[in-house]
Design a protein around this nucleic acid. Structure first.
Lengths: 237, 237
DNA sequence: AAGTGGTCTAGACCACCCT
DNA sequence: GGGTGGTCTAGACCACTTT
């Protein structure tokens, strides 16, 4: 959404323009469109590529570029709990269950790419949506990247904190989702009955340099949460 | 993987080159690299953008371009069951439970963007991995796009069929995952006990033109299946 | 000041679809 | 043959980091 470059400004212009058009309506030819937007065709094509990847438009070789039909709205799979809940129109909340340093044992060290015995921070929170318990979240972060992390407020909006204080942003995340039934302890925290379904989400995050910066395990109550994701076919490869 | 364009050939070359390098090792400067690969810097940058999006490399402004550290291998969220299972090293199988035309009722018509009462094909299959039941899959496809679909063998590899016979490919898919416990009927088909956890995956797929081409509901057994996905931060926006 | 990636351009040529 | 998107180029200039 940054309007620092011509391309991103043209992108915003074009998105607005597409919204006023009907599905399968044809866009002006690229040379003309570039002219209207005040950019070169090369820059325009960069913008069009992004829009195509996002499913807003499609082009047919030798024929033209068209507005796509239904818009599958993309859920931000890279967002954290707070952002995710706000996108769903709910108010996120948090109750801190634990926050402290510990030594990484085998599995944790492996997931984070650290040597066994390295220091990690473990933060465990009960996450709420509109005051209702939604999931139990357990996050581990390498202490070497986030010095004095616990002197800050980690009860909510952890990603904002990592970005603003440590200038670290998630670039790639891998999530594994499994289904199970709640144990007695989990059930009590989540306010459900033992034996009810829960979704387990394990997540490993890396920054742009490819360093693992987070390993998280969440247990969502299955009766109230649904996990949404959008996949797009890649270009070039 | 197509080597028809200079860019895709350079991409393949560069991937091979990166594999011989160590994490955080610096690549040659762009002008030189473009020269070595026999392409212009503009074309090279297109390739580098793809590699960056894929998490293979990262670049630091004013400094250089580097090989990323750990490689999170991307699971193809756009693949079908057969492809998915083969990627996990298992042999996919299928038992056809039902295949026939029907009239789209409200919810189905809505998901597929059809008028109520349009004809859709419903295909229900029990999907196996190494002969073991893995999920129950119910797919609905608009008959207007896939004329005489049922004269073909739909028991396995449906996506391959859609591509080879109808030249239709999935470009964007949206999936919603929820957790529940198996009903008696589901449990029997899946070979588990009623009350055990299952994962429900609902999926809407669109082709490049934005037409909804598939609506599917799957129920995976929670004890044997895990859902993996990789998310990457987008450029431009 | 020198070196690097980031943005943008004008224009050439190719591949394909239509009438 | 005329129109459209797809690929590729050489080069300019900017922004940032390092010495």
């Amino acid at each position: 959404m940054s309007d620092r470059t011509k391309a991103s400004r043209a992108y915003a212009d074009l998105v607005r323009r597409i919204q006023t058009m009907r599905p399968h309506e044809m866009l002006p030819r690229e040379v003309d469109l570039a002219d209207e937007l005040g950019i070169s065709r090369t820059t325009l094509r960069q913008v069009l590529t992004t829009l195509t990847a996002g499913g807003s438009i499609y082009s047919v070789r030798g024929t033209g570029t068209f507005v796509s039909e239904a818009k599958i709205d993309k859920g931000g799979a890279l967002s954290g709990f707070s952002e995710d809940m706000r996108a769903r129109g709910m108010t996120p909340g948090s109750r801190l269950l634990h926050a402290g340093p510990e030594l990484a044992d085998g599995p944790v060290a492996e997931h984070l790419g650290l040597r066994a015995g390295a220091v990690v921070y473990r933060i465990e929170r009960l996450r709420l949506a509109n005051e209702i318990p939604m999931c139990i979240e357990e996050v581990r972060l390498p202490a070497e990247y986030f010095v004095d992390l616990l002197t800050h407020d980690v009860s909510a909006g952890l990603y904002d904190l990592l970005k603003s204080v440590y200038s670290v942003e998630v670039a790639v995340a891998r999530q594994t989702i499994t289904s199970s039934v709640a144990t007695a302890a989990e059930a009590e925290l989540l306010g459900i009955a033992a034996g009810e379904p829960v979704m387990n989400v394990q997540r490993t995050s890396q920054d742009a340099r490819g360093r693992s910066i987070e390993w998280a395990r969440s247990r969502y109550r299955g009766d109230r949460y649904e996990f949404t994701l959008t996949a797009t076919r890649n270009g070039l490869v």
